[in-house]
Nucleic acid binder design. Structure first.
Length: 447
DNA sequence: GTCTATGATTAACC
DNA sequence: GGTTAATCATAGAC
């Protein structure tokens, strides 16, 4: 009641909480009139419904009503300003901006671009997924499209609800403005409040959508979940390389790239494969022996064919000069024994290399030394390509690797020394081949 | 469902 | 930055 009295005093007087009012200075009689009206308003809640209704009707019809409403609206406006000014202007929420940007980037919001095809492409590029994953792509697209659809449906629902509610509140306030002082500004402010509330709900929707997209994306990208065994062909290529470089199975970057291309996998997958292979081979050499022999035999057959072809070719194309032998550039020995081609091939499969033995390395390449020896025991230096070089080159070509004959496990069960370190293993990934460049895809120099 | 093989990931190391 | 060693997670065989 004290408040009521205070209000009456302030209205009847001049100020309210220090705010001068623009109420025209009333005459004494009118002042009494207003005082009566206010008294009626203030006591209306204490009365019965019927009484209140009657009073309300009386007040609505009162000639001073518009002026009184105007004054009350002004008071409300002024008292509310200081409180609301800080709330009215919210800075743009950075989180909302982030969500909006993300949804746009993922192709969920904004114009539809092939149901997130760009996102799929980006995701694909990120993991280097091959073209054979089109099923997963379409699956991803379908799910993304589903998310997009749900998002837009929900968004529409929210917008509709927001509009309906706003309209409802506005109508309500306009209706109420007949009986209580509600200014248009207040209505506007109320609308803003409603919009803010709905916008916070909208943000939750956006957040949930983003989470759904993230989950979908992570599932799509998570290679562990989607682990597929490499094709048989790819595994064979990798194994061939591994066992033909057993003494130092560290493919260079170029070799990795070449292998990746051949196997239709990524370079990092090649690295992974070699990492796994090395460690698993090292852990259980016995288990891999059979596999090693298999690939060694395979390599040897290929090599033998290449050797035969190269020998034939060199015999046909070059004069049979006994002095056309060569010194193997990257071996620390020279050959002085003579063996014929049959011996060579025999050696390849029996694991012997005639009278020569290469300490610490049993590479198939040693057998080439036998071949070399059959032509010449002395070195040829400088002047152009030697017959041995051409053979070696031919073999390299036939195998796809410049020194593909190295490290054949048929001769050496494994390339590890007693310490579990690969023979001659130089700093991994920094190896370079002295014969790099002649159809070479890797650069081992271990031998 | 269990077991093995295998591709991927991670921390530590050089 | 690449490798090792341990580990995880999944595929595939049984």
């Amino acid at each position: 009641m004290e408040d009521q009295t205070h209000l009456m005093q302030t209205l009847g007087g001049v100020t309210l909480a220090g705010h001068p009012l623009s109420l025209p200075a009333p005459h004494d009689g009118k002042q009494q009139d207003i005082g009566d009206i206010l008294q009626q308003i203030m006591t209306i809640t204490d009365q019965s419904l019927d009484e209140a209704q009657a009073k309300k009707h009386g007040l609505n019809c009162h000639r001073m009503k518009p002026a009184l409403f105007s004054v009350l609206c002004e008071i409300k406006e002024k008292t509310g300003l200081s409180m609301r000014s800080s709330q009215d202007e919210e800075p743009t929420d950075p989180q909302l901006m982030r969500l909006d940007n993300m949804l746009l980037a993922e192709g969920v919001s904004g114009p539809e671009k092939g149901s997130g095809a760009a996102a799929v492409a980006a995701a694909t590029a990120a993991v280097g997924v091959g073209a054979d994953n089109s099923i997963e792509h379409s699956d991803y697209r379908a799910k993304l499209s589903q998310i997009r659809q749900i998002y837009h449906t929900e968004l529409e629902k929210y917008e509709q609800a927001c509009n309906e509610f706003t309209t409802h509140v506005m109508n309500l306030l306009r209706e109420q403005s007949r009986t209580r002082p509600i200014s248009p500004k207040e209505i506007e402010r109320m609308v803003n409040i409603i919009h803010r509330k709905f916008s916070s709900i909208q943000m939750q929707l956006k957040q949930s959508t983003c989470e759904a997209v993230m989950i979908l994306r992570s599932r799509f990208l998570d290679a562990r979940r989607k682990r597929r065994n490499f094709s048989k062909q790819a595994t064979e290529i990798l194994n061939e390389y591994f066992y033909s470089h057993l003494s130092n199975p560290y493919p260079s970057e170029e070799a990795k790239e070449e292998l990746a291309k051949k196997c239709a996998i990524t370079v990092s997958q090649v690295s992974n494969w070699f990492g796994n292979k090395r460690i698993r081979y090292k852990k259980n050499i016995g288990k891999f022996q059979e596999e090693a022999n298999l690939y060694a035999a395979k390599t040897a057959v290929t090599a033998a064919q290449a050797v035969a072809a190269a020998v034939q070719n060199s015999q046909n194309n070059s004069p049979a000069t006994p002095s056309s032998g060569f010194q193997m550039k990257d071996e620390e020995f020279q050959l002085d024994a003579a063996e014929d081609k049959n011996n060579l091939l025999n050696n390849m499969f029996t694991g012997t290399s005639g009278s020569h033995s290469l300490p610490g390395s049993g590479d198939l390449f040693m057998s080439m030394s036998s071949l070399n020896g059959s032509y010449q025991s002395n070195q040829v230096t400088g002047a152009g390509q030697t017959q041995g070089d051409s053979i070696r080159h031919a073999i390299g070509q036939s195998l796809g690797y410049s020194d593909g004959l190295r490290g054949n496990p048929l001769y050496s069960p494994h390339g590890l020394n007693g310490n579990g370190v690969w023979h001659d293993a130089v700093t991994p990934s920094s190896v370079t081949s002295p014969i790099e460049g002649t159809n070479s895809i890797h650069s081992d120099t271990s031998n």
